[in-house]
Write a protein that binds this DNA or RNA. Structure first.
Lengths: 326, 326
DNA sequence: ATGAAAGCGCTAACAT
DNA sequence: ATGTTAGCGCTTTCAT
């Protein structure tokens, strides 16, 4: 009767009222542990974030909550601040608490942890990116084709030597972005070289590579940066070195959501459809939970648009070293 | 033996190894639901946020995680996006899942929900602020005395008519800030009037009140704004109306953490010791859980420092209408 | 239709 | 010291 099936079982309204009143009197609180233990279902999913910065997790959760909607399932967020050991503990904890499924923005080096989760029978889906070599685990991510928008923009401004700054992070989307970058340049009739792609070891920092390039021969006139955190680092690096940013070198990047960008320093960026990513991820996880038989593949969330900020501009004509258009 | 009490029980290393191997073989996963049901303890606490924006939740969680440290307790974050009904569902869910305690940044109008939580026997502590009239529920919050720093700053710049912009939000810290503001002005020998305190209905927006004031007689030369979200609104309002911000009117505010401020438009703000707030809150909740007998009172987290941005400057001398210093 | 009983997986208490 | 059992609170199943 406390299940809300009163009408269906033809119980008088009066009785229902009485029971509900009694329940309130004794302060009755259903025990979700007992229920979960019995039903083998907790109506909770875990959402694992490395951090809650820059509104990213906020927007993801908007999508997740929207998708879950009136469903009884509750998203439980955990956050490990990039600490691999903590991530492991949190994942174990979620699994032991028998969440119905897990959404996880993965760390690069967590392969065994993620495998462990699925081995224990908990549906897992990656959010945003996926470690390479874990193709059996599905992933909802932003379509890397969006890279094209930024490259087009730089090409339209006359840039011909564009250097890609990324991170050596062993993830599939990260790699896919490099391919799109490469293809975009080739489609434009350029012949990018292997050395135009510089990978640093973290996804926040860029090394000194960019400065050396600028001081060398045939310096790039623009950088395409894989993650916006890195772009901010680059901007500051250039600023400290006295390189004027839109004038001498342009910077375009990926992943800024409209909100975080308008609040921050105005990078030219391709905005990510973050809410949609969250929604798609939740939707697919729920279907994995409902129908464990068919495994979804990797799926891309399309969308995003170029936000032209103050870090891109036409090629400086002052230096005659630039090669002409083909 | 799976409890890690092997040494203490003098079980041979070999046996331990064998058991662990067996456990791995059968893919044994302890069931936290059963354990929680039996022990009446889940080693989980709930953390309830209205939103995950601006790094605030991020920094709070740094403090919480630091404090929980090696303890087995896991913080489960939920986020309701300001939706009161969703907050109610999430709180119920946490209670029914028998979390050991709850940290909650409260909404203004959630009194009955919060009361309900404690009536069901779950330790609850408010984070950052507390609804008025719920003094039985403890609260960890930033010491409102920090308001003084901002007011001092404005006074030192020569401002004598400073208007307080806050929100009618029926919370204790919010009110305390007004008192500190008032006292700071009195201490400086000024006689603030009731009409120098303007309250709007939301904590993000300011009405048109500020503009009207500026156009009226004896206009203020500075605003002290209770929350930084409001300060941003005010800044834009003034900007749209063509009022130059540091030149004609100064704005100082509260609550910006160093990070979010440096990324955003450079408001003059008093930075909040957000990580410490998180730590203090977690620490006190844990002690409430361990010793349910003595209830902690409200406690303030001290700290924070003035970050002088680009929205405060000396009083414009152009208008002779300003009263002289007493 | 209604009620009784079994059992989910664990641990604390008890008995050996 | 070691093994056994009862029971946490719920739902499902089986018997009436």
């Amino acid at each position: 009767m406390l299940n809300g099936k009163a009408a269906e079982r033809k119980i008088s309204v009066e009785t229902v009222q009485r029971v509900l009143a009694a329940a309130k009197d004794v302060n009755y609180t259903p025990n979700a542990l007992a229920r979960g233990l019995r039903q083998k279902k907790t109506h909770a999913i875990g959402v694992v974030f490395p951090h809650l910065r820059n509104d990213w997790a906020h927007l993801i959760m908007r999508g997740v909550v929207e998708e879950l909607g009136a469903s009884e399932t509750v998203p439980m967020i955990v956050c490990h601040h990039g600490d691999a050991e903590l991530e492991a503990r949190l994942l174990r904890s979620l699994v032991e608490r028998r969440v119905d499924g897990i959404i996880c923005n993965p760390l690069r080096n967590g392969m065994d942890r993620y495998r462990d989760v699925v081995r224990r029978g908990v549906p897992l889906i990656f959010l945003g990116d996926a470690p390479k070599g874990l193709d059996e685990i599905p992933c909802s991510a932003w379509d890397p084709a969006a890279v094209h928008l930024a490259v087009e923009h730089l090409l339209a401004l006359g840039h011909r030597r564009i250097v890609y700054l990324g991170s050596r992070d062993n993830r599939v989307i990260s790699e896919a972005r490099r391919h799109v970058f490469w293809d975009s340049l080739r489609q434009a009739g350029l012949s990018p070289s292997r050395r135009d792609i510089i990978l640093s070891s973290t996804s926040e920092d860029v090394g000194d590579g960019p400065l050396e390039l600028l001081r060398g021969e045939n310096p790039p006139t623009a950088f395409f940066v894989e993650y916006d955190d890195q772009a901010v680092s680059l901007y500051q690096l250039l600023d400290d070195a006295g390189v004027a940013c839109p004038r001498n070198v342009s910077i375009a990047t990926m992943g800024g959501s409209p909100r975080s960008v308008s609040a921050g320093c105005c990078l030219t960026t391709v905005s990510a459809p973050v809410v949609d990513e969250g929604r798609a991820c939740a939707q697919r996880l729920m279907s994995m939970i409902d129908e464990p038989e068919h495994k979804p593949e990797r799926a891309y969330v399309h969308g995003g648009s170029l936000l032209v900020g103050q870090t891109t501009g036409p090629v400086a004509n002052s230096k005659p070293g630039s090669r002409g258009t083909p």
